[in-house]
Design a protein around this nucleic acid. Structure first.
Lengths: 216, 216
DNA sequence: CTCTTGATAGAACGATCTTTCTAGTCCACC
DNA sequence: GGTGGACTAGAAAGATCGTTCTATCAAGAG
């Protein structure tokens, strides 16, 4: 209990702080306070200091967000409505948190891209994981294999860009509009596919139903 | 000469530093050193301190990037190739700068979104200007007015997301793939348009020519 | 000439940052 | 039942941060 508890509280508090204030904008003292962990414990669990803590935090938050998106995606009846639900969910999260909760690693990723190669590599790993997850789901949903990876990149980039624009404007208009555009593009990739490659769960006229079933 | 020189050197040095290291990651001392401006001059020209300097820097860099994109866009023969050229140009800039030069305000925008409402509002203004510029150019290029704004949002968000993914991965693969996807989507919006609304400069089979003419 | 004003130049200040270090506490295990 | 290792707790150190302050300089106005 104790073993996971303090360490996990630190990582969770760090994830939240890094997400909202970035890497350099977050002090270890704040993490110590908000996690109710003694200051010395930070360096006990993460001897590598702030960089090691941030690395672990990015992996933790990255995996958590991936699982969240996967749960929402897999509950949707087809890839097109999955895209819609993911973007609408992102918009809802933004609204509910007053535009504080967005991508847990994008802010840090941009900050460290040119200043800390260790952390940059971690963010690249996380994004790669997300892309692999999206690519697999697109292919399972009937998107032609030749297009799954570039569409996964489009979805992820648009989502990240949507977070950026929505947070700046304090409005989810862009996130919702972008979601519609991307959903249309994914739909088009299904229409282009030869009929033989289409699989179940492709969207044919049916609109997104309520996402009642699934992992929740 | 002297009047603009020091002040402008400060803003330019700040723009570069903020772009690469973010807001909290950049110290005033560094800006003073790299601009070869006396430290006192920073507070002479920007009595509001770091926030005022950052605000001016964001507006300056935002306008500069807008004009750069507009020049590239307007040199293209149609909207679809304009999108391609913009994304390819972004990829080229990333490569040429070893993934340091990307969007001049995205990093700061994410950093300050939840911590500094003054600067957040400035970033929102800049993005609004970019969106207005893109929207006008899409409409002039024959995109149905009902879709220009959401497509402008898609283009901008995808470009920003492309910068994020490309910088993290130190590869322009994503930027290029995303550009192709977005170009296809814009093309589709032209195909959907009733023939009467199509204007000159719409892409019909012709591919992107050399971008010889224009503002340069 | 003096006075004024915009700009230069950097010292000083208090706060905060990351890292390191030294104790003290708790508990499992020999 | 004492001993070792994991964890707690926070002080100390050394650097850097943003801001403020004073002093100097250059040049045009009266």
């Amino acid at each position: 209990m104790t073993t996971t508890s303090t360490r996990e509280r630190i990582v969770r508090a760090a994830a939240e702080a890094f997400q909202r204030q970035g890497f350099t904008g977050t002090g270890l003292k704040q993490i110590s306070t908000e996690s109710r962990a003694p200051f010395g414990s930070l360096y006990h669990f993460f001897p590598g200091g702030k960089t090691e803590l941030a690395g672990e935090t990015l992996r933790f938050a990255g995996l958590g967000y991936q699982q969240l998106v996967e749960a929402v995606w897999d509950a949707a009846p087809d890839v097109v409505s999955a895209v819609r639900v993911v973007f609408d969910g992102a918009a809802e999260t933004l609204r509910a948190s007053d535009y504080a909760d967005a991508c847990p690693i994008a802010t840090v990723a941009l900050e460290v891209a040119s200043t800390n190669d260790t952390l940059r590599a971690v963010t690249a790993e996380v994004f790669d994981g997300w892309l692999a997850s999206l690519t697999a789901r697109l292919e399972a949903g009937g998107v032609p294999p030749a297009r799954t990876r570039e569409l996964a990149m489009l979805i992820l980039a648009s989502l990240e860009g949507g977070f950026l624009l929505s947070r700046a404007a304090k409005s989810t208009e862009s996130m919702e509009a972008i979601g519609r555009c991307v959903a249309t593009t994914v739909q088009a990739s299904l229409d282009d596919a030869p009929a033989t490659t289409r699989k179940r769960r492709s969207a044919r006229g049916r609109t997104a139903g309520p996402s009642g079933s699934g992992t929740g």
